[in-house]
Computed example of a mutant assay.
Amino acid sequence: MRLQEKVAIITGAASGMGKSEAMRFAKEGAKVVVADLNIDGAEAVVQEIKDNGGQGLAVKVNVTDNADLENMVKTTIDTFGQIDIVVNNAGIFDKYTNSLETTEEQWDLIFNINLKAVYKITNLVLPGMIERGNGTIVNIASIAGLVAQMGGAAYTASKHGVIGYTKHIAAVYASKGIKINAIAPGTIKTPLTEEMLKTRPTNKIPLDRFGNDYEVAELAVFLASDESKFMNGAVVPIDGGYTIV
């Protein structure tokens, strides 16, 4: 098992890519904290993890709320003793809203969830990781952080920010034992997007299909494991080749 006895927090893990990541991490031996605003969904994921012989804990968290984030970290340490891995997966989409149509409130909400929460969670877990001389962070960005027109103004800007922040943390804290990388998914089929994607063409993707959430989870496991120990500050697209054409 590649993550045996590691303790991992995964945000936005009650459904979609986050759920697949939680299930896959648990299968690889990690003790998984399923953090989500949807506590019923989070508890269902934890039950599924336990039914499959894994260990998990559900924590209700609004990633824009400082008290919730502090509680998430404290509860994890109180329960499992430490935090080895964080997957900053929680995020929201802006439905391709252009700048002139984006209100300041929408902009702030998207940035607070997609980018500011990554900064706040990272700052909460970094001291403990640095003290132990070891810690891994995987940030779920997007190909909208690499190219234009895969999201609206706020989403695109926020995901560019996640990538820039990932590189900064790697450059500054690598010598302290911190490994941080970002995943840039393309269009991924999840239970929430499956119906919408039925009418969306795939001809601009060289592999001519959408991705699946379990494929992103496999990449997240690799980046969280020692198999990727010489990778730091990397941004890995998983997009069927969309960004190469």
Rank of each mutant, 00 (worst) to 15 (best):
36 D>P: 08
157 A>S: 15
112 N>I: 02
200 R>K: 15
187 T>Y: 03
87 V>Y: 02
94 D>G: 01
125 V>M: 00
169 I>R: 06
50 K>A: 11
220 A>V: 12
5 E>W: 15
103 T>Y: 10
185 P>R: 02
159 K>C: 08
219 L>R: 02
80 F>H: 05
61 V>G: 03
92 I>Q: 02
153 A>S: 15
234 A>N: 09
61 V>N: 00
184 A>M: 06
189 K>V: 12
116 K>M: 07
198 K>G: 05
110 I>M: 11
234 A>G: 08
104 E>W: 13
50 K>P: 00
111 F>V: 10
103 T>G: 12
195 E>K: 13
152 G>H: 05
94 D>I: 00
123 N>K: 15
235 V>D: 08
200 R>I: 14
107 W>I: 00
136 T>I: 14
44 A>F: 07
237 P>C: 09
31 K>L: 11
155 Y>R: 06
168 H>M: 14
215 E>M: 12
31 K>C: 13
144 A>V: 09
83 I>E: 01
42 A>L: 01
197 L>W: 07
45 V>Y: 04
32 V>R: 11
182 A>C: 08
223 L>T: 05
106 Q>G: 12
227 E>A: 13
174 A>H: 09
58 A>C: 00
121 I>Q: 05
57 L>T: 01
177 G>E: 04
226 D>A: 13
215 E>Q: 10
236 V>R: 07
119 Y>R: 05
133 G>E: 09
3 L>G: 06
45 V>A: 07
137 I>A: 10
10 I>A: 02
80 F>K: 07
2 R>H: 14
172 V>W: 15
156 T>L: 02
182 A>S: 15
34 V>Q: 07
167 K>H: 04
166 T>C: 09
76 T>H: 05
25 F>T: 05
76 T>F: 04
159 K>M: 07
59 V>L: 10
120 K>I: 13
80 F>T: 04
205 I>W: 04
169 I>V: 11
125 V>R: 00
153 A>R: 15
60 K>M: 12
96 Y>V: 08
228 S>D: 05
202 T>K: 05
180 I>P: 03
222 F>N: 03
226 D>C: 12
120 K>L: 14
25 F>I: 11
148 A>C: 03
4 Q>L: 14
129 M>V: 03
7 V>A: 07
223 L>Q: 03
52 N>V: 08
108 D>Y: 06
197 L>A: 10
65 D>P: 01
217 A>E: 09
17 M>C: 03
158 S>Q: 04
240 G>L: 02
75 T>S: 14
61 V>F: 02
